[in-house]
């Protein structure tokens, strides 16, 4: 067990899997000679050579498709997207080929490919580079969608994703890459892809988040605690399939729910969570589900505007107070 940076935990996971299985290879833009745009793949070229750690041209559709084709033959490609905003360029490959070829072939192929990289908003990169793509992927049967939030689960989950026989969308966050935490050295440290976790126990309200928003939800929980409100914070980790049992168990205890997501509200993951809760725990509802989301605008560049339209600790606190009917005069949805 050592305290290491988030990016190093990801690096360890890839390193160990490259060492373990000759069918694993890494491909993406700047992953080899440049050591990775965010240094996640640092040192891997020197260790494994250009056949296993492969620089790709700026050709997302091309190299994502190459990864899928290699997976059809049983290889385990780890395809790095410099950011998931660029996955939009490769959407046909991921949504049509990775997600559907197994099905369309009547189960004749396995597609053990992992698409990984940072997702969501960073800081003042403007609208094209700030997309939260998880709802698109989670919408699509055939894909598994995982979001890591700590150095520890980054390692354990990425290793499981690489070993998984289905295509996995593995979402990281640039804003978490420097976060430090304890990470097991064990090369067999694996975490299940489909399990969320309770990050903080509470009894008054459930806050559901994933990726970097988990940390915001935790901060919100601290502030709520100062007012005597005990919030339970869930880190979903798996966005497809959703860990429904985790959500429902918590909701049946707290009877109040706030979902936090970096993407837009309409057709968002929080909408599916609200749907599950109202269908399966209607009798436990003490308030309508509140959703803290991105405003329905493309991400603005201006720093203050960028902050204003995103989920924030303040918005989460307010939403939690609303489901507890603590601030009834505030009626603006989600703000």
């Amino acid at each position: 067990m050592a305290e290491i940076e988030f990016r190093k935990a990801l690096n360890m996971a890839i390193d160990e899997e490259l060492a373990r299985d000759p069918d694993v290879f890494v491909i993406g833009e700047e992953v080899a000679e440049y050591d990775g745009a965010y240094k996640v793949t640092r040192g891997l070229l020197a260790k494994y050579g250009a056949r296993r750690v492969v620089d790709a041209p700026i050709s997302e559709g091309g190299f994502c498709g190459l990864g899928i084709g290699a997976a059809m033959l049983g290889m385990r490609p780890v395809v790095e997207l410099m950011t998931f905003s660029f996955s939009l360029v490769a959407m046909d490959q991921i949504l049509n080929n990775a997600a559907k070829i197994r099905y369309m072939s009547g189960g004749q192929v396995r597609l053990p490919v992992t698409f990984r990289g940072p997702g969501g908003v960073v800081h003042q990169l403007g609208a094209t580079h700030s997309n939260a793509t998880e709802s698109i992927f989670a919408h699509t049967p055939g894909l598994k969608v995982v979001a890591c939030s700590t150095p520890e689960n980054a390692k354990g989950l990425l290793k499981s994703a690489i070993r998984d026989d289905d295509p996995v969308i593995f979402l990281e966050s640039e804003l978490l890459y420097a976060l430090k935490g304890e990470v097991p050295d064990d090369p067999e440290f694996l975490l299940p892809l489909h399990k969320g976790r309770v990050v903080r126990e509470g009894s008054d309200v459930t806050l559901v988040a994933w990726s970097k928003r988990v940390h915001q939800a935790m901060e919100a929980a601290d502030r709520l605690a100062a007012d005597g409100i005990r919030a339970e914070v869930l880190d979903l980790i798996s966005l497809r399939p959703l860990d429904q049992d985790l959500i429902l168990k918590s909701f049946r205890k707290t009877n109040r729910l706030v979902t936090v997501e970096e993407g837009w509200s309409f057709c968002g993951i929080g909408a599916s969570i609200a749907d599950i809760v109202q269908r399966q725990a209607f009798d436990f509802m003490d308030a309508p589900v509140e959703r803290v989301t991105l405003e329905e605008v493309p991400m603005p560049y201006n720093e203050a505007m960028e902050y204003h339209v995103q989920p924030s600790v303040e918005k989460i606190v307010k939403a939690a107070r609303r489901v507890l009917y603590r601030d009834v005069k505030e009626s603006t949805d989600g703000r």
């Binding site: 091309g62 498709g65 290699a70 997976a71 059809m72 049983g74 290889m75 049509n96 080929n97």
Partner: peptide, 21 residues
């Protein structure tokens, strides 16, 4: 493959698998 041209990158991946396995 139903989408015009979408399987050409897959062919590259199959070529990759052939070459490296």
């Amino acid at each position: 493959h139903g989408i015009v041209g979408a399987h050409i990158p897959l062919a590259c991946g199959i070529g990759w698998g052939i070459k490296h396995r």
